[in-house]
């Protein structure tokens, strides 16, 4: 694309220095005046970073998924064997179910609570800035730390929730938060929601603030109820932000690792094993790097589906361009 001045100079070693200098000069000149070439040049560092830190590891992961590589031992190409193996593996199938359940339930609740919180924070409140900062706290605390706090909150012997309820006389034995499969699923989801809501709330709040008040004025002059204002003004204008935020939220939730690893390590009876935690367990402590990689790669189609859904389903609605659906 840059284009060498002329191919006939290539490979000839007897050129005069002056000719070479002239040539370089011409090349640099041409480069400086060529927008495409310059653009390419400027994008090169970023491209190299992406290639090195994203494309290469991803490619390597995909490739490993097709091999029987062990930690500490190179592997051979085995085609789809890992995937066939995982498909027949009851624990892997359970982890897929857990991951989908975890993602769907947590994302829906996080969205509902996040939107609600954003709408509240968008009102004129005293100490607005302070409250907004406080709301962000769960998101700022490192996940590993908040997970340890939840681990104590859910502890079979030391749970503060169980303790309080017992003291109040509401229950007579401690709640088995993490020891019963369904309790454990909902407990981990609750911890995830606690951590995820601020992100959604603050992003949606940013979106809400870009909506011009004049729309609301016009709506109220036309006699729109608050619900109608929300339904026909707020929601349509917020949809692009919702699409982006929820895509991120779904991706984060789907690939959650730390919370589960600290709280349950996938137990009890593998009821909270997500694909990410099972992938780690198989690949690193278990040594089956190829199988773990395959499990991680198996997450990609779901993630792509989530991205495509938000892109085509939410972001490209015709009415956003002034047309009709």
């Amino acid at each position: 694309m840059i284009g060498f001045p002329s191919p006939r100079f290539r490979g000839e070693g007897t050129l005069h220095h002056a000719t070479v200098a002239r040539l370089v000069h011409a090349l640099v000149n041409r480069l400086q005046n060529n927008r495409n070439a310059l653009g390419l040049l400027f994008i090169l560092p970023a491209g190299a970073l992406l290639l090195f830190f994203l494309t290469y590891p991803l490619g390597l992961g995909v490739w490993l998924g097709f091999t029987d590589t062990k930690v500490g031992r190179g592997g051979h190409w085995v085609g789809l064997e890992n995937y066939v193996f995982l498909f027949g593996d009851s624990v892997a199938r359970l982890s897929l179910f857990n991951t989908l359940f975890y993602t769907v339930v947590a994302s829906v609740i996080k969205f509902a609570l996040g939107l609600w919180l954003a709408l509240l924070l968008n009102k004129h409140l005293p100490f607005k800035a302070f409250i907004r900062a406080v709301v962000l706290l769960p998101f700022i605390v490192p996940t590993a730390l908040s997970a340890i706090a939840f681990w104590w909150i859910y502890d079979a012997q030391f749970s503060v929730i169980s303790w309080t309820l017992t003291k109040l006389g509401l229950i007579d034995r401690y709640i088995d938060f993490l020891g019963d499969p369904w309790n454990a699923r909902f407990s981990t989801i609750a911890a995830n929601i606690w951590r995820g809501v601020p992100f959604i709330a603050i992003c949606l709040l940013a979106g809400l603030q870009t909506i011009s008040p004049s729309y609301y004025e016009a709506a109220s002059l036309d006699g729109a109820t608050p619900w109608q204002q929300f339904r026909y003004v707020t929601l349509p204008l917020l949809t692009p932000i919702i699409a982006v935020v929820m895509t991120f939220s779904v991706l984060f939730t789907f690939t959650d690792f730390q919370l589960i690893y600290v709280l349950t390590r996938g137990g009890p009876l593998n009821a909270t094993h997500l694909m990410a935690t099972l992938s780690f367990q198989r690949a690193i402590p278990g040594g089956a790097l190829g199988e773990g990689a395959a499990l991680a790669v198996a997450m990609v189609p779901f993630l792509l589906a989530a991205i495509l859904f938000s892109y085509f389903g939410l972001q490209r609605r015709a009415w956003q361009q002034g047309g009709k659906d």
Binding site: Y154, A156, Q157, G179, T264
Partner: peptide
């Protein structure tokens, strides 16, 4: 067993024992 052992990870039995619950 004491309740909750299905959720017990490596540190749990130490904690429960030292608290006199096990």
């Amino acid at each position: 067993f004491v309740p909750g052992t299905l959720s017990w990870l490596d540190p749990n039995n130490n904690k429960a024992f030292l608290d006199g619950q096990c």
